[in-house]
Nucleic acid binder design. Structure first.
Lengths: 207, 207
DNA sequence: TTGCCCATGTAATTTGTTACATGATTTA
DNA sequence: TAAATCATGTAACAAATTACATGGGCAA
């Protein structure tokens, strides 16, 4: 049956969710979303609630997770909590060990806009860069803060390592923006010619 | 009518395609895909053929691009070529100037796997890092090569700037992988996490 | 003349988001 | 007690990919 092979070919996001469960705790969809926002977010995008819920259903159907309803003592609405199965542990371990390394996916909106520099005033290019710089510094700080919370716990050693990586990554993003600000300034003053007027609406040629 | 506002709220990928057209040439879907692969790819993901075709239809419907069929002299199948309109230039310029700067989207598969280090043998972590390192160095070199082709043309000044950025970005990715290899080795030899930064690779050096 | 790759698309499917529904809990 | 918010989902929609269809040029 094709089903057997499909189990091994889940999208990366499924593995990310199963990875969250692989630390062993029994968690609800809501818990997973919150945790995802505080960890995966730094190097992988954090899926929406609805996608986490549907990934959980898929994982359960594949036999990689099991769930049960939990009645809240205070009369709160019941919730469904998930736990990874033995099959799930085997599968996610195999995935992490044996899947070919594929390149990261980057969609860098700010760079896309700077690539269209012929449509911008130099001040607007700088504005984009400064805002990105601030974003990067903020992310860096949050990575440091989260790493602080995760240290001294042996089981968080590898998550802590990736937070360390994230700290450096966002420091680099910040510095890259600064370097590009310099380059824009140099282009503006130095080698005059291109873009000195800033506004170049006649690029469409013959018209 | 809601239609008028929808025109201004296209997804980023539409603006990317319109941005490709904003340099003024008349291009087919196939041309756009090829060019996208050699430019956008470094900082924005390159959309598939089919998506480029559907974006072109959407842009034409919005009045931002016009198309015509071109009969090939050699009897080859006719093809449709697109050109940006005045409305399109105005729209993409407005987008590039006035849209709020939103954060880049990163889906870093290699980091996701290292985050799950408790499922891996140390050798496997290193393998992932080495392969990512090689990928990053290859991208860096391609960015350098493409920048070589784009220099000395005034209209490519800003694309050239983003290629410069890409060169540094991938150099940094490469160095970040090297730093993490060190951290994994340190963790392995029992001394817990490595020092808290300070010895970071110099981003502006463009090694 | 068979098979393969280039070029130009369309259709089916999957992935992921936003908007909505529901109920309990807190707060003003 | 009304409004805001937390928590748990479902449904409708949009974005994006893979698979497929088509036809010409070219190499074995």
């Amino acid at each position: 049956m094709a089903d057997e092979t499909n189990k091994r070919m889940l999208p990366a996001t499924s593995w990310a969710v199963l990875g969250l469960l692989s630390f062993g705790e029994e968690l609800s969809g809501y818990d997973l979303k919150k945790w995802s926002d505080r960890s995966l977010r730094f190097f992988y995008w954090s899926p929406s609630f609805s996608q986490i819920y549907s990934e959980l259903k898929r994982l359960e159907k594949a036999g990689y997770a099991s769930s049960r309803m939990v009645a809240q003592e205070t009369g709160t609405r019941d919730k469904r909590v998930y736990r990874i199965t033995g099959d799930g542990m085997t599968a996610v371990r195999t995935w992490a060990r044996e899947t070919p390394v594929d390149p990261p996916v980057l969609k860098h909106g700010p760079m896309l806009r700077l690539w269209l520099g012929h449509l911008l005033e130099p001040e607007q290019m700088c504005e984009v860069l400064v805002q990105h710089q601030e974003f990067a510094e903020q992310m860096r700080r949050q990575a440091v803060a989260d790493a602080e919370g995760a240290k001294d716990e042996a089981s968080w050693a590898y998550p802590a390592l990736t937070l360390k990586w994230a700290e450096r990554y966002y420091a680099s993003e910040r510095d890259l923006a600064a370097a590009m600000l310099d380059d824009v300034a140099a282009l503006r003053s130095g080698r005059g010619a291109a873009g000195t007027g800033g506004d170049r609406p006649d690029v469409t040629g013959a018209g």
